[in-house]
Design a protein around this nucleic acid. Structure first.
Lengths: 256, 256
DNA sequence: CGATATGTTGAGGTGGATCAAGTTAGGTGG
DNA sequence: CCACCTAACTTGATCCACCTCAACATATCG
């Protein structure tokens, strides 16, 4: 683990989604707990009963990470698992020469550490300010082993991630640059929609380089495609995001 | 489901690995059961005790598929899950215009249906003759729900597949054609090695088109890269396979 | 033995990469 | 509050890795 950063002051927490995910949850002080958690409905903990939630609450600690902070590196001992409550993460793998593939972006409600294994299989950075429920991995594993219901939920989350990964393989292996960018935006829209967001303006806290490393392109190509779609009035470039002006055209290009 | 083909005559079953995986196992006739199964050590069922194995054995039926036969298509109702006992499968997704991405090749010991979900998330074809233990999905799910130990094993298999998928994203998104082919061969060697095979000659029952659709290339590019590596004495092209003549050079090109 | 699937190789084209400016937007210290 | 600095982004010019198209070779199988 690179660091654990509970010491972050409650500095301006920029949210990918305004308002909905910015309050601390899953505290151990008991005043506010998992019951009131805004992301529970989208999370693996959503399967638990009240008494189980209390037990989980006791095990959890709120962690905060500043933008660009590294949560852990591939190969680190996996001391913790996390449930993201606000902000955006990039998960990535590096080749020895520095080439990077971002295997996914995490949003509120997403879980880090599905594999429950000894070491992290990828690296993770906060893109903007991130808050998360943090659990000691061995405590969490012990808890899971007593709750088949929770294991079942973790398994469902893992197989869902596997499907998402397979869809991304199609994108990386068989789609053009314009299709990649369009398809990515539609995927983000869908994810944000599930989180209750408007899904017309897609907030993009990540850089063009991040997008490129996720889509198997260069940052210049991403920039060019975005410019082209903006020129064609399919998108409107707004600060830290894109507004979808012509959804049906975007779906026509990016549909799978 | 496209078909279920128990009616396959015991025709010449070409094995990807000679001898080791060609006898029928997991029968319901009781004479020979999961206990003697050659792939059990590599499979999700490897976690079960003898009495549990017997229960599983009762639920299973041996299924055979001829080369090029389709087991199921993406979107089909997932009536069955399978444990492969011999042969090779391709799992793939199609885009509306026919472009194909092969998300994985399955070998003996691999499990199909990890997600336990209502519908298949990809299509599956037998490449050569395939034998498998077939389970009714709802029976299998009910069994899993009574055996947290087995669920845990399925979860481990799913998260392993997720890691494999993420590694493949790196390959598809960030590696050159020569690196893709080399890395693929090293991956196959490793998998065959774990199955107890010699791992010097890599049997390749799949076509160049299959390889291309797995690696995000065209069949011509795959052919050219293989020819180039053969010309450089890194590989030797043999019927339905490749012999690795210079492993360290291959690792130098394909290492991650 | 012809027919069809599969594989190899060559010639030429192109989508996206690379290289190179120049622009914009924050962030910081004076 | 402004001047500077740096990170992020955009756009243009050129290049090249891989694709496309085409011809031919080889293998398999009714």
């Amino acid at each position: 683990m690179s660091q654990t950063s509970d010491a972050q002051p409650a500095a301006a927490v920029t949210e990918i989604q305004a308002g909905a995910f910015d309050r601390p949850r899953c505290r151990r002080d008991g005043t506010s707990a998992c019951e009131g958690c805004g992301v529970r409905a989208f999370s693996v903990c959503g399967s638990l009963a009240t008494d189980e939630l209390d037990a989980l609450n006791t095990m959890s600690e709120k962690a905060h990470f500043a933008a660009k902070e590294t949560l852990f590196l591939q190969g680190d001992r996996a001391d913790f698992v996390f449930n993201i409550t606000s902000g955006t993460l990039r998960l990535y793998k590096l080749l020895p020469d520095g080439r990077r593939q971002i295997v996914g972006f995490l949003l509120p409600g997403d879980f880090v550490g599905l594999s429950l294994s000894e070491r992290y299989g990828f690296s993770a950075d906060a893109i903007d300010a991130v808050s998360a429920c943090r659990f000691d991995r061995s405590d969490f594993v012990a808890f899971v082993d007593r709750k088949p219901h929770l294991l079942r939920r973790l398994h469902e989350a893992a197989t869902h991630e596997l499907t998402v990964a397979q869809d991304h393989m199609v994108l990386l292996g068989r789609r053009s640059a314009e299709e990649k960018v369009s398809s990515f935006l539609l995927t983000m829209r869908e994810r944000l929609h599930r989180l209750g967001a408007s899904a017309v303006t897609i907030p993009l806290p990540m850089t063009r380089q991040d997008l490129a490393d996720h889509l198997g392109l260069t940052l210049e190509t991403v920039s060019r495609i975005v410019s082209k779609l903006a020129r064609e009035k399919v998108l409107l470039v707004v600060p830290d995001g894109l507004r979808i002006m012509n959804p049906s055209r975007l779906e026509q290009i990016g549909a799978s």
